[in-house]
């Protein structure tokens, strides 16, 4: 999950904390696999943002790979 355009969270603020999003570390899990990733999110409360192209692109690819395994 390495490639997230750092600009994808630009102009976005957390609705709870009212601070701009930054790149934050999260853990991604699916079908008994877990791995770390860096995605845009709120540095204060941790609310994440998955942009559309990430969800339908790289993430969908990883989903398919794990599902086919």
């Amino acid at each position: 999950m390495e490639t997230v355009d750092p600009k994808s969270g630009e102009g976005m603020v957390c609705g709870c904390c009212n601070v701009p999003l930054e790149t934050i570390k999260v853990t991604i899990s699916y079908l008994k696999s877990t791995f770390p990733a860096e995605i845009p999110g709120c540095p204060r409360c941790g609310q994440v943002y998955i942009p559309e192209d990430l969800a339908l692109g790289r993430m969908a690819e990883v989903e398919r790979t794990l599902e086919d395994k």
Binding site: I28, Y30, G41, G46, Q47, A55, E63
Partner: peptide, 8 residues
């Protein structure tokens, strides 16, 4: 998406 993001 189907991947689960474990938000801490």
């Amino acid at each position: 998406h189907r991947l689960e993001i474990l938000e801490d």
